[in-house]
């Protein structure tokens, strides 16, 4: 079975996000990147499926900040093939254009099950999975937390609210937007990634950046309105504790 996992880097939210002077984008040179956490879940699920039923896992990503390292890390974790999509993505890329570029590259390789992160922190114009499925003309299910492959079909569990899940049977090829893998995404030591960087190679495929196809553009970015901001409690841990206890007492939650 051929598993394909599109992955991407997103700004690490642990760091302070700074805006550019025009206030239309992040100040990109100050951004620290990490793999989209849901893509990491998708990769883990693909690796688990490979271990379970056999096959090969191909990871692919648009060329950008630290893309090589991200792809090599995926290979170090167990992916068989890494493909870097080359093109003009300097000014960032909208999800519609990313999905189109990926659909073109994926159509040229064998694929049965495409697993990608259910969402990303910056997918303003829509989640990759359903866009990609649309361009490839294959079925998709998003918000998936459980995947089995039985008799050439995927049996997937999609999360609804309140802890309820719906089970679907899906003909392959298909795209799944993965919310969480069955296991915590595996860790791989930096030394192992360095080894892989020396031994493995990434394939490069030229793609077109269909910028503008998303039909919308960013007018302004801003910090959220601070109207209802919390009243901050300060002091030593002991002082803070006493103030919190006062709040509980006022609420009748502590005598």
């Amino acid at each position: 079975m051929n598993f394909v996992v599109p992955i991407k880097q997103v700004p690490d939210l642990v760091e302070e996000l700074e805006l550019n002077e025009e206030g239309t984008d992040l100040s990109r040179d100050t951004v620290k990147y990490k793999i989209n956490e849901f893509d990491d879940q998708a990769l883990e699920e693909a690796l688990q499926l490979k271990a379970e039923i056999g096959g090969a896992v191909t990871v692919l990503a648009l060329d950008g900040e630290e893309t090589d390292k991200m792809l090599f890390t995926a290979i170090a974790k167990g992916a068989d093939r890494g493909i870097k999509l080359m093109g003009d993505f300097a000014g960032g890329v909208a999800m519609h254009a990313a999905a189109k570029a990926m659909a073109g590259a994926i159509a040229a390789i064998p694929y049965d099950l495409i697993l990608t992160g259910v969402q990303a922190v910056d997918d303003r114009d829509g989640q990759l999975g359903a866009l990609l499925a649309g361009y490839l003309g294959v079925p998709q299910v998003s918000v998936v937390t459980g995947v089995r492959v039985e008799s050439g079909k995927a049996v997937v569990r999609k999360e609804y609210s309140g802890g309820v899940m719906a089970e679907f049977e899906v003909d392959l090829p298909a795209v799944l937007g993965i919310q969480a893998a069955r296991e915590i995404p595996r860790y791989v030591a930096v030394s192992r990634v360095r080894q892989v960087m020396k031994s493995a190679t990434l394939e490069e495929v030229e793609v077109h950046n269909a910028a503008g196809d998303e039909g919308s553009s960013v007018r302004r970015m801003m910090k959220p309105p601070k109207g209802s901001r919390a009243q901050m409690i300060q002091g030593s841990p002991e002082e803070i504790a006493d103030k919190v206890i006062d709040l509980l007492k006022a609420k009748g939650l502590k005598k």
């Binding site: 939210l13 503008g212 919308s216 960013v218 970015m221 801003m222 910090k223």
Partner: peptide
């Protein structure tokens, strides 16, 4: 952490 205003074509 951020609000983003989008305009449409």
């Amino acid at each position: 952490k951020l609000y983003v205003e989008s305009q449409f074509v």
